[in-house]
């Protein structure tokens, strides 16, 4: 992650990591998640789904910080985040 200055608690804290899940056939290809992902995790896929839209694909899964903005913006309930399991283990 790029910072404009080094945070004072950079040693103690780190950004969480999330997994992005997309329901390929439910998507209507609006592109809100792709346009507004703050970490550019998603890209438009080349494939069509059954409805004829281009759903997003998770192009850079390592970049996701589990902010869940795609989940909040998706009008089709077709994309959501979960906290990475290793992350959950580490916080236990």
């Amino acid at each position: 992650m790029k910072y404009w200055r080094k945070p004072l608690d950079a040693e103690r804290k780190r950004a969480p990591h999330g997994n992005v899940h997309v329901i390929f056939e439910r998507c209507k290809g609006c592109g809100f998640c792709i346009a507004y992902c703050p970490r550019q995790v998603l890209e438009v896929s080349d494939e069509f789904n059954r409805k004829g839209y281009h759903p997003p694909v998770v192009a850079h899964p390592e970049q996701c910080v589990n902010c869940r903005l795609c989940e909040a913006l998706c009008p089709e309930f077709a994309i959501w985040n979960t906290l990475d399991e290793q992350e959950v283990e580490a916080t236990k």
Partner: peptide
């Protein structure tokens, strides 16, 4: 429709 904002209001 695709790109309608109503689904976002529901979320």
């Amino acid at each position: 429709c695709s790109t309608c904002g109503l689904g976002t209001c529901l979320t």
